[in-house]
Nucleic acid binder design. Structure first.
Lengths: 198, 198
DNA sequence: CGAGTGATTGACTTAGATCAATGACCGTGG
DNA sequence: CCACGGTCATTGATCTAAGTCAATCACTCG
């Protein structure tokens, strides 16, 4: 059983909320009342570390869940802001916990979802161990390419992708240009296509 | 309820196994039969990515759990090798799943543990967004310092720490030397002490 | 007692960070 | 409707921190 299936079963209990582009859903440190499913649009999750540096934790798209930590912590450990117009659905802590009490399959589905995130984080961390900007981009593309012709839609802006890859946006632009010039990739309306090596 | 408490309740079901230093517990791709608790010693978890690069996923010490993914995947996604002489306890998949069916608190404890890992990974990822080697080291130290005088025991070798921080070992040695010289840190028998700024 | 590995330091090079400037685009308000 | 402020995209020039190559010493293990 998948989280989505299971969420569907308690769908009625979710409270929908609309966000305008740029609107903040919650801030780091806000009391956590539950977790959210992204129904449409994109949200940017951001953490600021003790020294004041800003780190993009991730970009959540339709279907993703955010703030799972709400179940285990009284406050949010990162902030979430709508990048585009967005709709989210809130699932209250108490209700979810009750569901877990009652339905072990739901628990398992939730664990699997959490573990999926762990895997995702591991891959992202692994990527940061790659020195070369080009190889890092390639790693990202191969890990995320989908569809008939290997294409990746950029999560939000190129700047965000740069942050995700741990590069400055300038370095990423340059790398992307170089890779386009060398025929490794092609950019088509907001997507990056991975071209097969000859 | 904490995972440890709960594990303690089913302790009897764990199967202990001894490892010599350097011995591999399981390899990436091996069938996963369950997850392990590290009873003593240290294990290094390593992943090799499709291009053949080696990435240290983490160093597990006594009390840590490894291979949680076993519950959700038929094979191991990384390899685990004993760094020192070590003892691990195996908890079989089926038994854990049965426990989850029966005891929702166990499920919750397990989820909390998984979430703890997510948080840990997030912090590590965040650290990689820091440019300067010095600041990265500082971030690591402040995040991990414990005890009366802020000290961090290096997980295994300095080389491993370098990998964890995403630096070459040379760069780390130099940074550590510079920081020692400037009085920011002190090194005492395998520990790094964070010295308060004047 | 070698062989293998970690720790440490030196010299040199380079990829990417920084600083800087420009054009495109978008929403907003007068 | 258009001017304006803001942000993103893109490219250039410069600089430096960290990577790379290389050598040495210490230590452990069979």
């Amino acid at each position: 059983m998948d989280v989505k299936d299971w969420l569907a079963t308690i769908q009625g209990t979710g409270i929908a909320r609309k966000l305008a582009a740029g609107q903040m859903l919650y801030d780091q440190g806000d009391p956590a009342i539950g977790l959210y499913e992204v129904v449409s649009g994109k949200l940017r999750q951001v953490r600021v570390d003790p020294e004041g540096r800003v780190v993009v934790v991730g970009i959540a798209c339709a279907g993703d869940m955010i703030a799972e930590g709400a179940l285990f912590s009284p406050i949010h450990d990162c902030a979430a802001t709508a990048v585009t117009k967005a709709v989210v659905r809130l699932y209250r802590k108490a209700r979810l916990l009750a569901e877990f009490e009652r339905n072990p399959d739901a628990s398992l589905a939730f664990m699997a979802m959490l573990f999926g995130q762990i895997l995702n984080l591991r891959v992202r961390l692994e990527r940061r161990s790659i020195q070369s900007a080009r190889d890092r981009v390639l790693h990202y593309l191969t890990a995320n390419a989908g569809g008939k012709e290997q294409a990746v839609a950029l999560p939000s802006t190129v700047k965000d992708l740069a942050a995700e890859l741990g590069l400055t946006h300038e370095a990423l632009y340059r790398t992307l240009s170089a890779m386009t010039a060398s025929g490794e990739i092609a950019r088509r309306n907001g997507k990056i296509c991975l071209l097969a090596p000859l």
